[in-house]
Each structure stands twice: as structure tokens, then as C-alpha cells.
């Protein structure tokens, strides 16, 4: 489903070159739940961002459904992100000026759909994460756990095949973290392919496969 070959990411400042990722080769199969672990600054989030086409590698190739994306235009990449991928971020990244329902609708705004069908899909996604009673609230009226559930609803509203979660429980207490993990496990059971960056060994154990990074290099 997602194939990364010889991925390298170099950050260049005025006279310092930092190698964030070095020779990464990963093949994520359809329906897998893969976790990525490693110490802080080892390149986990960079890897996830490259996988989700939010960032470009300095070298190497990415293929989604066996199609290399190097030559894709901005529009093609946007289309792919919109149709195939749903993101969950550690810091939620909700738009504070929009209601919960409007936030969840965002991925559908860039598809051809009617206002009514968008509303219905967003309500359905919020029901799945148990937040149907908060639809008209705004993000700053919610707790951290609730915000992350909104972020999950937004990630799944367009039924993407891939969900990329960057430390989705990082800002939550353990009870809330488990609740979020359970939602992700349910989504995976329903057929979604999930890649999750985590610091929590216990959570990683519940996934199908664990990829470990150290100083930008894949160690397992």
C-alpha cells in the first residue's frame, strides 16, 4: 500500500547538514496496523510526514498503491491526500474558528459532494467517536481527549484507506490514551491501514508490527 525505498532526509541550514532519515525501506501492507517507535528526535514524525506526502524526502522513492509519486504535481498530491489518507496529529490541529462539525467536514470540502451529504458524513463520523452531542461546540470548549476524538473523526470522515497518526495519545492521560487506541484498533479491524508513531511500548505491542528508528536509521 505504501512503499518507501532508500528514503533519506537532510535538513540544510546555513552551514550545517543534518541527516534526519537515512536509507529507510518500509513496505506497509493493506490492513496492517504498524507502529513506529524511537527516542525523541530520531526522525519518527519526519518519516510519517514523508509517508503522508506532507514532506518531501531528499532522496529515495515513495509509492502509493505501486504508483511512484515523485512526478506528481501539487494538485495530484492534494488529491491523493484527500482520497487516500487521513491524519491524526499529536497537537490535534483543529481550526478554532470553526465548530466541531465544520472541522470534521474539512476533507469533504475538497471533494465533489453536496452540503447535505457532507453534513451527514461528518455527523456519522462524530457518532463513531462518541461526540455527536458536541457538534456545535468549538475546539476550545473541549478537553484534550475530546479534541483528539474530533481529529479522528476528521481523519475518517472521507473513508480513507490509510490513517497516519503522529503520537495521537501523546498529549493525553493514560485512560484517554487507551480510549483513543481502542478507536484506532476498531478502525483497523474495520479495514483501515494504520501507521502510528508512539512513545508508548504497551500501545505499540497491540499493533501488528513495530518499526524502530534510532538517529534516523531503521533498526528493526
Amino acid at each position: 500500500m505504501i512503499k518507501l525505498s532508500n528514503i533519506e532526509k537532510v535538513y540544510q541550514t546555513s552551514n550545517i547538514e543534518t541527516l534526519a532519515l537515512n536509507n529507510i525501506n518500509i513496505d506497509i501492507k493493506k490492513g496492517e496496523f504498524v507502529s513506529i517507535m524511537g527516542p525523541s528526535g530520531c526522525g519518527k514524525s519526519t518519516l510519517l510526514n514523508i509517508m503522508g506526502l506532507l514532506d518531501e524526502p531528499s532522496n529515495g522513492t515513495i509509492a502509493i498503491d505501486n504508483k511512484p509519486v515523485e512526478k506528481f504535481t501539487d494538485k495530484d498530491l492534494a488529491y491523493l491526500r484527500n482520497q487516500k489518507i487521513g491524519f491524526i496529529f499529536q497537537s490535534f490541529h483543529l481550526i478554532n474558528d470553526l465548530s466541531i462539525l465544520d472541522n470534521v467536514e474539512i476533507p469533504l470540502l475538497y471533494r465533489t459532494s453536496t452540503n447535505k451529504s457532507r453534513r451527514e458524513a461528518a455527523k456519522e463520523a462524530l457518532e463513531k467517536v462518541g461526540l455527536s452531542n458536541r457538534m456545535k461546540h468549538f475546539p476550545n470548549q473541549l478537553s484534550g481527549g475530546q479534541k483528539q476524538r474530533v481529529a479522528i473523526a476528521r481523519a475518517i470522515v472521507g473513508n480513507p484507506e490509510i490513517i497516519l497518526a503522529d503520537e495521537p495519545t501523546g498529549n493525553l492521560d493514560s485512560a484517554m490514551g487507551n480510549e483513543i487506541l481502542n478507536i484506532l484498533l476498531q478502525l483497523n479491524a474495520a479495514g483501515s491501514t494504520i501507521v502510528m508513531v508512539t512513545h508508548d511500548e504497551n500501545m505499540a505491542k497491540k499493533t501488528h508490527r513495530l518499526i524502530r528508528l534510532f538517529d534516523g536509521t531503521q533498526v528493526s
Binding site: 494538485k75 492534494a78 490541529h93 474539512i106
Partner: peptide
């Protein structure tokens, strides 16, 4: 910027 990033992450093309 945050809003732009979010919208792009969820599929907004630059033109939109």
C-alpha cells in the same frame, strides 16, 4: 498558517 497546513493536509490544492 496552521489553517493552511490543516487544509492542505486534508487535500486542499493551492488553487482552492
Amino acid at each position: 498558517a496552521s489553517e493552511i497546513g490543516i487544509r492542505k493536509a486534508f487535500g486542499a490544492p493551492s488553487s482552492a
